[in-house]
Design a protein around this nucleic acid. Structure first.
Ligand SMILES: [Mn+2]
Ligand SMILES: [Mn+2]
Ligand SMILES: [Mn+2]
Ligand SMILES: [Mn+2]
Lengths: 217, 217
DNA sequence: TAATTTTTTTAGATTAGTCTAAATTTTTTA
DNA sequence: TAAAAAATTTAGACTAATCTAAAAAAATTA
């Protein structure tokens, strides 16, 4: 059994490892976990001891196979609870993350398997992120950002790459939800803002900042 | 915000206080929390400091009003989660307690109010125990034990005073569930076992040990 | 490549919660 | 009511997770 803290470190290393081969740096971990580099060094020693990370002093860390499996099981629990909160308890997609941060540490395999069944074996969480399976495996989808789509193309909104309540509430106000159809009418030369036709019914201007964080397929 | 450990102590003091005016002893707490008396003494000092218990050295403890309110809020969460696990996830009433021991510490008022609504504002948990309200108030019902019912009387099973999986599984095997009607046919002079007519259809012999732990009205 | 800056690790403390062993207080017994 | 037993508290240590300050290593810059 691993502590909440250890599980959080594994999860953080997993997220910081995405899209890079290099090890995650001590400072990056200190930033993400709101601790100091010294505390991170201590924890890395312990996680290495337990065979969950590959760690050489001053060299950064990567997860071992077992470490990644554990990280993905925590992420599985996090995302399943988010689905529960959003679909069954009617929480907004901007509210579910903080609560799931606590629920993800509840230790009962049977609980999570039954929850999965109760939810109808969802494949994605409320933000469009894929849910790992019970073996700790997660399909990797490669989506493009709305900001990279050329004029005239029609795409579907499949996810977000920014999960802050402020951003998600902004999308709510704009009426941008997962699954909506987006036709890129025009991209402004001036500020790269995007004019999009939503679900063939209304036109919306999306700032480049927002477009960068909308994942589409 | 109080720690898991502090919440567990409050809950334990609450349960050990039931049916007595006297303070709860250090040893009783050590037994119930699987710690040593010395550890309990330490914790009692801290809880007293925070105004959650009335504590004088060597005299045992009682909860203050605030301490009792907090204990009842933890119990509220525990019992609501038990209802969720039993009714929505199809866990047996013998399985829900251990999982609820973890879930009861999730800190989100909105979560528990939404869970309450989702469950249809249940009044009792799967073992027949009443669920405190959001203000930390709990109705007190006084039920009798089946072992105290005189021959010829008909009663309804409303709860259990023993919550071990072994006992609950035993009741499952015997087909004794909350709400069933029990007519006391005969009480044995020899071993105090009770012959009961269940829901007017079948007769069952219930040992005194079991009868003592069945609450009826 | 030598000096400077940045990053990381070590050293030494702190806090919550726990322990064992010893001291103290209360309760029971004779 | 004094001695013995039981219950409780104190003393002193330990572990996990954190911190600040100092030392050491790596990376950058001149
Ligand atoms: Mn999340
Ligand atoms: Mn977490
Ligand atoms: Mn319970
Ligand atoms: Mn608990």
């Amino acid at each position: 059994m691993y502590s909440f803290t250890e599980e959080n470190y594994l999860k953080t290393i997993f997220y910081l490892s995405i899209g890079t081969q290099e090890g995650v740096s001590t400072n990056a971990l200190a930033d993400s976990t709101n601790t100091r580099a010294a505390s991170v060094s201590d924890m890395l020693k312990r996680l290495a001891e337990k065979g969950l990370i590959n760690y050489q002093k001053y060299r950064g860390v990567t997860l071992t196979e077992e470490g990644e499996r554990l990280a993905l099981l925590v992420i599985r629990k996090h995302r399943l609870w988010e689905v529960f909160l959003a679909e069954k308890l009617q929480f907004g997609w901007d509210e579910v993350h903080v609560i799931a941060e606590e629920l993800e540490h509840i230790r009962s395999e049977r609980l999570i398997e039954k929850l999965d069944a109760f939810l109808g074996y969802p494949k994605f969480d409320p933000h469009g992120d894929p849910i790992p399976n019970a073996a700790g495996e997660m399909p990797r989808f490669i989506y493009r950002k709305l900001s990279e789509i050329v004029e005239g193309t029609t795409v579907v909104m499949t996810g977000v790459s920014e999960h802050s309540p402020a951003f998600l509430q902004h999308l709510d106000k704009a009426g941008l939800t997962l699954g909506c159809q987006l036709k890129v009418n025009e991209i402004s030369d001036f500020d790269k803002s995007v004019s999009v036709l939503i679900d063939n019914v209304r036109t919306l201007f999306v700032s480049h900042e927002v477009a960068k964080n909308l994942l589409v397929k």
